[in-house]
Amino acid sequence: MLELDTEGCMPANPSVEQIEGETWPEPASDATYVIRRVHQLRRVPVGELSIEDLRIMLSQSVGTVAILPRVLYLLEENPLSAGDFYPGDLLVATLRLRRDHWSDHVGLLYRAQHLAQRVDAMTNQPNGVQTPELRRMVREFLSN
C-alpha cells in the first residue's frame, strides 16, 4: 500500500518500499551482496533505479509489481537494454518471472509478449541478436 507523505500526497517518485507499504529490517551482518543490495534498492525511488538495479530486483522477484511498468517502458524503448551482463539481460530477467505473476497482470503480459516477439524477429535477422540465453528465453516465453 502506497504511503502518503505528511501532507497526504502521494510521492512523485515512490520507492518499492513506499509502494508496497512494507519496511524491511536491515539484512543480517553476514548477508550476501545481493541480499544487502536488494534491501538498499527497495528504498530507492523507482524512477532512479538503474537497468542493473532493476535486473537484480527482478532476478530476486522483489518489488516486481512496483517496478515492472518502468521495466517494460525501458524495454519498449530498447529491448536489448543491458545491466552488467549482456545486451538483453533485463529482458531475460523479465521473461523469467513466474507464470503466476503474469496471470495477475494480463496487460503487462501482453506488453512482454510484444517485446518478446520483437526480439524474436531481431534474432532471425542475419546480423541479429546472437546472445544464446536471450534467444532461448524469448522462444521459451513465447511458447508458453
Rank of each mutant, 00 (worst) to 15 (best):
N144S: 10
E3M: 14
G47M: 11
A28G: 00
R36G: 13
A121R: 00
A31M: 05
Q125M: 12
L91W: 01
S29R: 15
S143V: 09
A93G: 02
D120V: 02
V16Y: 02
D30K: 11
Q18W: 04
Q113T: 15
E7P: 05
D5K: 09
M1H: 07
R136C: 13
E7M: 11
L4T: 07
L115R: 10
S50G: 08
R99I: 10
G47H: 07
V38Y: 01
A66Y: 03
S103T: 11
I19W: 04
L109P: 00
S15H: 03
P126K: 02
T94Q: 02
S50L: 03
P132V: 05
V16R: 05
S59K: 08
N124Q: 13
L58S: 04
V34T: 07
N78A: 14
S50C: 07
L109N: 06
D5F: 10
L58N: 11
G21A: 03
V46I: 15
V16W: 05
V16N: 04
A116Y: 06
I35Q: 14
L75Q: 01
E140S: 13
I51T: 15
R96F: 04
R111H: 05
S143K: 05
P126W: 06
S59F: 00
L142C: 10
L90D: 04
E22A: 02
A66N: 07
E7S: 14
V44D: 09
R139D: 14
D30R: 11
L90T: 05
A121C: 07
W24G: 02
